[in-house]
Design a protein around this nucleic acid. Structure first.
Length: 349
RNA sequence: GGGGAGUUGGCGGAGCGGUCAAUCGCAACAGACUGUAAAUCUGUCGCCCCAGUGGCUACCAAGGUUCGAAUCCUUGACUCCCCA
């Protein structure tokens, strides 16, 4: 899922996203409630209509902002007090209001409000946090059902629960059990990709996915590098979201089948080849590395657009190839080859 | 012809006797980025090396004053502005 925090995948239009065949994008409760406001969006017929995107949208609950904006919030049992990063004003997010806001946004998949604790942390702290997240999840589910019951219009939104538990196997198990027992349309693994080593993340995912229903989507939140994605599919994950392809594109890092390159680097200023010869996206079909190097250095905003288009194409293509490999029973083969060709740093031609 | 201002590292531009190999910005060179406070942030940026309270050469040029000069004086070269 390409990330479109504030109602847009940065640097792209919905037309671009359709062209690369993105099937679902992500929006953010916290950011949209502050600006322009979820009620304003509701008055305009919801986020799809407002943003001109008519395919599915998943909205994150603001749980991650509980973590990333830690210095400007206060958590208690009932919810989170936030100080807006935009103007400093005070706002409150509760499990119930997070559900209400996402209902206003009209997303297709809503996430429960959770607490994403910083790592590393002690088992005691993680356990208290996961238990509160579970209580919040139950409240979110109840509020979700209220919407289902009371809305005059058909309320077709799905809701996902989030498993926490840090890097501790038993705590992940506890959180998974609590979350699954509430019952959701899908399950996410949260609280990872917050600075822990990759092997730790892989291990935790490996220990957690067996505890989640096989016939429902499993979503690993906030991950990751192309290698991370392949490795976590291997461990049973179905869905991902990550800012990496979009943010890094705007910062000049482009993913290729041979690994990442930094298009800013001097050698590319005279490189007439495409970003990735194996890629058939608009950027790779029409523009050279030399041109993209120039656009970036010149500060042209088109650089952000072409780079983002390519990186998202690379990510979505990778997922397509993964699906194909799985359907042909050749995933292990794919995984091995991917590791061989996708090096940490692509060779410069 | 007369009067005035100036010349600093790739560029712009600080500095006006020691703490200056020289603030800062740009450019350049590299790095980071994982449920987006990010078209952001970080590092390097005279030469040499055993990489350090290390060596060398440096602020237009030459000479001088001084324990000590990018900073003061003299001469020269060049640039710019104003009045004729």
């Amino acid at each position: 899922m390409p990330v479109g925090t504030a109602g847009a995948v940065k640097a792209l239009t919905p037309r671009h996203l359709e062209e690369i065949d993105a099937s679902i994008i992500l929006g953010n409760t916290y950011h949209l409630m502050l600006r322009p406001g979820d009620e304003l969006i509701a008055r305009r017929g919801g986020l799809h209509k407002f943003s001109g995107w008519n395919r599915p949208i998943l909205t994150d609950s603001g749980g991650f902002q509980v973590f990333s904006l830690a210095d400007r919030r206060k958590i208690d049992e009932n919810g989170v007090d936030f100080r807006s990063h935009i103007d400093g004003s005070k706002h409150r997010l509760t499990p119930e209001s997070a559900v209400d806001i996402q209902a206003n946004l009209g997303s297709d998949i809503a996430m429960v409000l959770d607490e994403c604790p910083a790592l590393p942390s002690t088992p005691e702290i993680i356990q208290k946090s996961l238990q509160m997240s579970a209580r919040w999840a139950a409240r979110c589910r109840e509020q979700f059902f209220n919407h289902r019951k009371n809305r005059p219009d058909p309320f077709t939104q799905a809701q996902f629960g989030i498993v926490q538990g840090g890097t501790f196997k038993d705590l992940r198990a506890e959180s998974a059990e609590l979350t699954v027992s509430i019952g959701f349309e899908g399950y996410a693994i949260g609280g990872l990709s917050v600075g822990e080593p990759n092997e730790v993340m892989y291990r935790v995912v490996e220990e957690t996915t067996p505890l989640l229903p096989v016939n429902q989507p499993r979503y690993l939140m906030g991950v990751g590098t192309p290698i991370d994605i392949v490795e976590n599919v291997a461990r049973g994950i179905d869905m991902f979201d990550c800012v990496m392809p979009t943010r890094n594109a705007r910062n000049g890092q482009l993913f290729t089948s041979e690994g990442p390159i930094n298009i800013k680097n001097a050698p590319f200023s005279e490189d007439d080849g495409p970003v990735d010869p194996a890629c058939s996206c608009y950027t790779c079909r029409n523009f050279s590395r030399a041109y993209l190097n120039h656009l970036f250095r010149a500060g042209e905003m088109t650089a952000g657009t072409l780079n983002t288009l390519h990186n998202l194409s690379f990510y979505l293509d990778t997922m397509r190839r993964i699906r194909e490999a799985i359907s042909f029973g050749r995933f292990e083969d794919f995984r091995q080859k991917f590791h061989q060709t996708f090096t940490r740093r692509a060779l410069i031609s």
